[in-house]
Write a protein that binds this DNA or RNA. Sequence first.
DNA 1: GCTGCGGTCAACCTTTTGGTTGATCCGCCC
DNA 2: GGGCGGATCAACCAAAAGGTTGACCGCAGC
Lengths: 217, 217
Amino acid sequence: MVSLRILLVDDHPVVRAGLRAMLTEFEDFSVAAEAADGDAALRELARLRALGERVDVVLMDLQMGAGMDGITATAAIRQLDSPPPVLILTTYDTESDILAAVEAGASGYMLKDAPPEQIRQAVLSAAAGETALAPKVAALLMSRISSPQTALTAREVQLLELLATGLTNRAIARRLFISGATVKTHLVHIYGKLGVDNRTSAIALAAQRRIIRTPGH
Amino acid sequence: MVSLRILLVDDHPVVRAGLRAMLTEFEDFSVAAEAADGDAALRELARLRALGERVDVVLMDLQMGAGMDGITATAAIRQLDSPPPVLILTTYDTESDILAAVEAGASGYMLKDAPPEQIRQAVLSAAAGETALAPKVAALLMSRISSPQTALTAREVQLLELLATGLTNRAIARRLFISGATVKTHLVHIYGKLGVDNRTSAIALAAQRRIIRTPGH
DNA sequence: GCTGCGGTCAACCTTTTGGTTGATCCGCCC
DNA sequence: GGGCGGATCAACCAAAAGGTTGACCGCAGC
């Protein structure tokens, strides 16, 4: 058969080298190009198309330091005409990452700790136009649809964001022009939905699930 | 010269393949063995020693899923007699990770987004018994010693980390086998040094300054 | 029109956290 | 060997947060 041409997108040289080594071990894969972030990926894709060179699958990381992130890049790629399938390959299996990837039009979602054979199968599935989900990811999606009542309202997420900046209840109340009592009510609801009983674990959990952005950058 | 023998410790097959490919491109490196976590690393080291095979450098990741983490493994390796130098190669450059690694006896601290040549140099330095630090890491340590009065102690950083996971004072006390009173004392010191007056803002500030890693990342 | 839900508020009480003072122990450095 | 700083602990009080109950309003959907 004709060799599958892959575009690698990952900001770590080590990981790119690993994927290249792992994939080209199989005679049916070849690396068309590599990119360190989303911008570079789009440029590479344009360059290859200009040269008339095929790209069958894009293997995309999500977190990529300073450059364009994988979600944005995936969405941009899906805007092209006859876009190649994008297979996400990342370290994190949080629900917001996964949902964002699906929304952006990813063809699959694999984790970096997967055995080589699983990654190889996922690439083949993606190239064939099928969907490939890591077992962990599939399990998370299943559990999510089985308990939808735990979804936070927009207001609650807003509270949670202010909470994470270190504000007291009173400060949050002033910021939102509501009473301290209402802040407490919201917090009790949030704790209930998240299954915690204090603000710090609510923040920790929300950060973990990417419900809120962490004050890192 | 005789080839440098390296033990790779990382839970991601992709990363191990990448390091193997990157390092063995240089004729002076060879991979003695690979391990997916700390336990496996110790077993490999024992096995190689039993066979009389040399290990010149251990390349160690920090986060390794379910298995023994890199800090613990590093400390364990340093307990052996004539232990090989351990070079940490990880994604994170937070103060808590770096301090823990140094305390555990690591010979260096490199980041995975480093260019191959930098990693190669670090391995050579470590093998020669020297210390190899990524520029970012070196800068952090420098700034620490230049203003030690506001610098948190290792213990305080450790408290801060547990704090960020959402534990109560009592839970932290149990985790560290100290009394609740001591936890409170530490927290008061931390708040004073960071210029805050409650736990959530301490966490927010510590995450912002990259003193700790947030649960999300 | 009624119901359900989200957002708002209040009173009351318990638990946790924050702030202060003071103390002991240990290791390190001059 | 005396001083210093980090880590440990205790008692006490004040402030903040957590938990419960109950209430009102506005809006969307049946």
